[in-house]
């Protein structure tokens, strides 16, 4: 079991939860477990072809899975996963 941190913009799709327990031996399986638990989050993470969208970054501990083995990166029990989305905000436009 691993804890996956959900950023605010994606919390509407996880019933408001900021952390979700997921299981899986690698990132791909962990994300599958996430989208099984919360199907509405799926289009925000994956494109129609089932590939991870390029603006979604997943970190395992301090490291981007892009710098490791991508979605094949193994996940050990108790490791912390984090989803990091692009957010645009800052200055306000009316």
């Amino acid at each position: 079991m691993t804890i996956l941190r959900i950023p605010t913009p994606l919390r509407p799709y996880t019933n408001g939860k900021n952390e979700v327990n997921v299981s899986g031996a690698n990132i791909s399986e962990a994300l599958n477990d996430l989208t099984n638990q919360f199907p509405n989050i799926k289009p925000h993470l994956f494109n129609e072809g089932g590939e991870l969208r390029p603006f979604v970054n997943i970190f395992i501990g301090e490291n981007n899975i892009k710098d490791l083995q991508g979605v094949d990166t193994p996940v050990k029990d108790g490791e912390r996963l984090m989803l990091i989305p692009s957010i645009a905000g800052g200055m306000h436009v009316a």
Binding site: S86, A88, G89, G90, V93
Partner: peptide, 20 residues
Amino acid sequence: CLFPEPPPPGLVPSCAEGGV
């Protein structure tokens, strides 16, 4: 390097829509 591409319009709400 972190975000090679922006999200498609509409997928990420702005502060004007989402609030802050």
